Computed example of a mutant assay.
Amino acid sequence: MSEKTLLITGASSGIGAATARQAIANGWTVGLFARSEDKLNALVDELGDKAIALPGDVTDFESVTAAMDKFADHAGGINAVYANAGTGLSAAGTDAGDPEEWERMIKVNVMGVLWTVKAAMPYLKKSTGHLLLTGSAAGRRHIAGSVYGASKWFVHGYGGNLSEEMKSFGGRCTVIAPGMVDTPFFDEPKPDKLQPEDIADAVMHALEANPRCAVNEIFLMPTQ
């Protein structure tokens, strides 16, 4: 098995795609998981034979498990998994919020993370591996009525709990917590905010830290 195999969810654009580019530049073999098969195939065409497209739905446990198994078979095992897939809300706050939209978001931001971690854990135990989760500045502070923020509080809490659980086999868990990032998550470009490459740099820092060093959280904010 290569010592550097990484599966990324939400890999078709934004932070996921930028992380895939950085990882391959650093010698990793990368599994790209997302719903958009066309975007994944285009990314594989760009990145070459160190990347494999794994189309699937993060809200479907069987889909995530099948992708994890396929990537492990392809790469000979899995050293790291980045649970990056996430979504936001169009209506802010609680009173103005849309319960159906909340449910869709929770399926991605909470259950999608749980499914990814559950499917990854047997492989990471074998490899003394590394989990990474995309948290948010919104998961480190209180925002009036924010249900999205609360979903990211879950990610931060769960990431800390995973760090404790993974100590039992020498594994590591890192929460990557950015402020506003210029990604397709937003309708309008945000050129003065963090760029996806900034987040990818943070992921690489955590992954390539000495095994004695568990980087539990990286919190990034734009200077502007």
Score class of each variant (00 low, 15 high):
residue 3 E to W: 11
residue 4 K to C: 10
residue 4 K to W: 12
residue 6 L to Q: 03
residue 8 I to N: 10
residue 10 G to D: 11
residue 11 A to L: 14
residue 12 S to F: 08
residue 12 S to V: 08
residue 16 G to T: 11
residue 16 G to Q: 11
residue 16 G to V: 09
residue 16 G to I: 13
residue 18 A to M: 10
residue 20 A to Q: 09
residue 20 A to P: 05
residue 23 A to C: 07
residue 24 I to E: 09
residue 28 W to R: 01
residue 30 V to E: 01
residue 36 S to F: 01
residue 41 N to R: 07
residue 42 A to H: 04
residue 42 A to C: 00
residue 43 L to Y: 03
residue 43 L to E: 03
residue 44 V to Q: 15
residue 45 D to W: 01
residue 52 I to M: 13
residue 53 A to F: 11
residue 55 P to R: 10
residue 55 P to W: 09
residue 58 V to H: 02
residue 61 F to S: 08
residue 63 S to T: 04
residue 63 S to W: 01
residue 64 V to M: 09
residue 66 A to T: 15
residue 66 A to F: 04
residue 68 M to D: 00
residue 69 D to F: 05
residue 72 A to W: 08
residue 72 A to V: 14
residue 73 D to A: 15
residue 73 D to P: 03
residue 80 A to D: 03
residue 80 A to P: 03
residue 82 Y to L: 07
residue 82 Y to R: 02
residue 82 Y to G: 03
residue 82 Y to D: 03
residue 84 N to C: 12
residue 84 N to V: 08
residue 85 A to L: 04
residue 86 G to P: 04
residue 87 T to I: 09
residue 87 T to G: 06
residue 91 A to C: 06
residue 94 T to P: 00
residue 94 T to R: 00
residue 96 A to P: 00
residue 98 D to P: 02
residue 99 P to L: 15
residue 101 E to R: 04
residue 101 E to I: 09
residue 103 E to G: 00
residue 105 M to P: 05
residue 105 M to T: 07
residue 106 I to R: 05
residue 106 I to E: 00
residue 107 K to T: 02
residue 108 V to W: 10
residue 108 V to T: 14
residue 110 V to C: 07
residue 111 M to I: 02
residue 113 V to L: 15
residue 116 T to F: 02
residue 118 K to N: 11
residue 119 A to I: 06
residue 119 A to F: 06
residue 119 A to G: 10
residue 122 P to Q: 08
residue 128 T to E: 11
residue 129 G to Y: 11
residue 130 H to C: 06
residue 131 L to T: 09
residue 131 L to Q: 06
residue 139 G to P: 04
residue 145 G to Q: 06
residue 146 S to C: 05
residue 149 G to E: 04
residue 150 A to Y: 01
residue 155 V to C: 12
residue 158 Y to A: 10
residue 159 G to I: 00
residue 159 G to T: 03
residue 160 G to P: 00
residue 160 G to N: 13
residue 161 N to S: 12
residue 164 E to C: 07
residue 164 E to T: 13
residue 167 K to G: 09
residue 167 K to W: 07
residue 171 G to D: 14
residue 172 R to C: 09
residue 174 T to C: 13
residue 175 V to R: 00
residue 178 P to A: 02
residue 179 G to T: 03
residue 182 D to H: 07
residue 184 P to F: 02
residue 185 F to R: 05
residue 186 F to I: 02
residue 187 D to T: 14
residue 187 D to A: 14
residue 187 D to V: 13
residue 191 P to W: 08
residue 191 P to K: 07
residue 197 E to N: 02
residue 198 D to H: 12
residue 199 I to S: 06
residue 203 V to L: 01
residue 209 A to C: 12
residue 210 N to E: 14
residue 211 P to C: 08
residue 212 R to I: 13
residue 212 R to H: 14
residue 213 C to R: 06
residue 218 I to N: 14
residue 221 M to A: 11
residue 221 M to T: 12
residue 223 T to A: 13
residue 223 T to W: 06
